[in-house]
């Protein structure tokens, strides 16, 4: 179909900007301005009562690292383990929904999304009750001599990682499902026709074709998991505190805004670097 020439030309000049402007405006006001404020705040000195002034105090970043470096390492380790666990759980699930579920497909997808109908906080609190020291899960595992930290589940790093895995699992399942579902079954049949056993067909064809979903799913899990503090708050001990917990405490309890801002900025930059390295490594642009 061809549009009248003059009209298409006139439209194409200004139209994209008109369409972009609400979104751009929103981002400037609610993303760029707070971000710049936060960055500036990290370089200010003073206190909550007297107010803060910009003194370009770069020293705060090294101070922050000395005090809270291990929190960063813990945040990223927990997020990494939770992402790997979520991938291991989600891949077979997404595969089954995409290829084997038949008429149950839609129901299963609704079930994957169902947890979103309750709030994140409520679900995490529910896990607190489930994993409680005197709960039946803990007592059953204890009687089976399941190896546990100090004989308990709640307030352990294990519980925090389980919570992170559970909470971000749908973000892993959905992109995996979307990319698996898009695979033309005839391509897999072609592999089988060309002497590939089922396991080889999976390794050589299905899995490579699902890589965009793997990349999207791991990012959508890792990024929020690294910044999360709810799971560590409710399911972990003081030894399991993540960066998010420290930011929370510095902003709302200690009122030390500069160090909280420095923590936030460092977290942001660290995730940005990790993610860009990962995307470059995964080479998603190669995959159609």
């Amino acid at each position: 179909m061809e549009l009248p020439k003059g009209r298409a030309r006139r439209g194409s000049r200004s139209l994209p900007y008109v369409l972009l402007s609400p979104g751009m405006l929103w981002l400037v006001i609610f993303f760029l301005v707070p971000m710049a404020t936060l960055a500036a705040l990290s370089l200010q000195t003073g206190d909550y009562e007297q107010g803060f002034t910009l003194t370009w105090n770069w020293h705060i970043y090294s101070e922050m690292w000395t005090r809270y470096g291990h929190h960063f390492i813990r945040s990223f380790s927990y997020a990494f383990v939770a992402t790997v666990a979520a991938l291991v759980i989600a891949y077979p699930l997404a595969y089954a929904i995409a290829f084997k579920a038949g008429r149950w497909k839609n129901l299963l997808l609704v079930l994957v999304i169902a947890p979103f109908f309750t709030s994140f906080l409520v679900r995490t609190l529910a896990w607190q009750a489930i994993l409680a020291d005197n709960g039946w899960v803990t007592s059953t595992l204890r009687s089976l001599h399941f190896p546990m930290q100090d004989g308990r589940l709640l307030n352990t790093s294990f519980a925090v990682i389980c919570g992170l895995t559970y909470n971000f699992l749908p973000f892993m399942v959905l992109p995996l499902y979307a990319s698996l579902e898009r695979i033309d079954p005839r391509v897999v049949e072609a592999a089988s026709d060309l002497y590939a056993r089922p396991i080889t067909a999976f390794r050589r064809v299905t899995f490579p074709l699902s890589l965009p979903g793997v990349v999207a799913g791991t990012l959508l899990t890792f990024i929020p998991a690294a910044g999360d503090y709810v799971n560590a708050t409710f399911l972990g001990s003081p030894q399991d505190q993540m960066v998010g917990n420290v930011v929370d405490k510095q902003f709302l309890v200690s009122n030390d805004y500069p160090i909280a801002s420095a923590l936030s900025m460092t977290m942001l930059v660290a995730i940005l670097i990790l993610v860009s390295l990962y995307i470059r490594r995964a080479g998603t642009e190669e995959i159609v």
Binding site: D184, R186, V187, E189, A190, A191, S192, D193, L194, Y195, A196, R197, A201, V205, P208, L209, E286, I287, V288
Partner: peptide, 20 residues
């Protein structure tokens, strides 16, 4: 005999080339 063990090959309707 499974497809991958048959000395038979197919040219599929929409070719089914491996896109990756």
């Amino acid at each position: 005999r499974k497809a991958y063990k048959r000395p038979v090959n197919t040219v599929f309707q929409n070719y089914a080339l491996f896109p990756h």
